[in-house]
Design a protein around this nucleic acid. Structure first.
Lengths: 205, 205
DNA sequence: GTCTATAAATAGATAGAC
DNA sequence: GTCTATCTATTTATAGAC
């Protein structure tokens, strides 16, 4: 009978996948460092160690290149959420999610979000995979937020959408970069500080 | 006797100042919308309504142009802080500061912060006026933060520098853009939501 | 100082050999 | 698919007349 699982990749396909993985890694790092507009295709090619023309054999445009990297991050986020221990209280699931986003950013692999009228925005809006992953993630987080509010663990006076956006914003929180530049705190300390300010607030309790 | 006050500006000087003011306004808006890298000098010139070459008579480079706009914002921030009612409790001074930053961002006049290794960063680091204003602002806010912590109004477990950065980060908080795009909330509501999450945190109290 | 026109550099993207 | 070399458009910046 026919299998629904993907066929075992050939050696050639594995090589290609590894190459594209290397490209995505570089693109994510450059997107994190400089953003879409400042990132040049020449830099990407140099960083991967291939010719620019070769890069264009893999991805038809700079937008597609960056969009693929964004899709990859979104997929990983979705996978992370799907594997969170279901028995955890909703609030802890939200904290685990933020912790994951912070770890990705500290690893220099969180692409900075595209500016308002960027050509990347249009590419993402037209990417089925990106939109699907985003909706999937938002649905799951939204459920946890409402459950946490119902349980009295998250401020019920806040619209769930505002809570969702506040969590998303941690993925590009400049506080991490600032504190890291200060050199006074370890990655773990920075993570705990941002988590604390996010959930506990600045005011004393 | 000689006066220490600046001389009354001539009509010509006033015209020049008004022109440069218009330039700064456009630059701030474009920096807020697209960031330094995506903003082009052509756009600035078109937005102001003068020729590009004329722009270069006012500012020697794109970096200087953007840096001048950043300095202008920093000066305004410093002036705002200097005029906050001294009798207010430190925590309320901090809240008023965040409120001001949010209002500037909602007005589309808060330049997005330059990316890590941007040429703008170097220009700002070399700008005496920018650094002076930044230090001035940080000193004043730092004093209020420590006072608020000593008074038990701000979480004393947080390093003051982390609190300072968290406040600074509100100036470029993407939550405002997200909520504004949603169209479900007024600017006032958005302001209160961000203020609440910042100071009260997401967790219920 | 403002303008038009242009230089000089760099970006994204492609041609064509291998 | 990878490479070198190149095209085309755009960008920063400047020349030179008024």
């Amino acid at each position: 009978m026919h299998s629904l699982a993907p066929a075992k990749p050939s050696f050639k396909e594995q090589m290609l996948a590894a190459r594209e993985e290397a490209i995505m890694e570089s693109v994510n790092r450059l997107l994190a460092e400089k953003g879409f507009d400042a990132m040049t295709v020449d830099e990407v090619a140099a960083s991967v160690g291939i010719a620019k023309a070769s890069l264009y054999k893999h991805f038809p445009s700079k937008e597609d290149l960056a969009a693929a990297a964004m899709v990859r991050v979104m997929r990983r986020a979705r996978d992370f959420l799907a594997n969170i221990e279901p028995a955890l209280p909703p609030l802890d699931k939200l904290k685990a999610t933020v912790r994951w986003m912070l770890s990705v950013q500290l690893a220099g692999q969180m692409p900075s979000l595209p500016t308002q009228n960027s050509s990347l925005r249009a590419a993402l809006a037209g990417s089925r995979e990106y939109i699907d992953a985003l909706l999937d993630i938002s649905d799951r987080l939204g459920g946890w937020i409402e459950a946490a509010q119902a349980g009295g663990h998250v401020n019920a006076g806040l619209p769930p959408i505002a809570v969702l956006y506040t969590l998303y914003a941690r993925a590009c929180d400049p506080v991490l970069e600032f504190l890291k530049a200060g050199g006074q705190h370890s990655d773990e300390q920075i993570t705990e500080l941002v988590l604390a300010t996010c959930f506990e607030g600045l005011k004393a309790r």
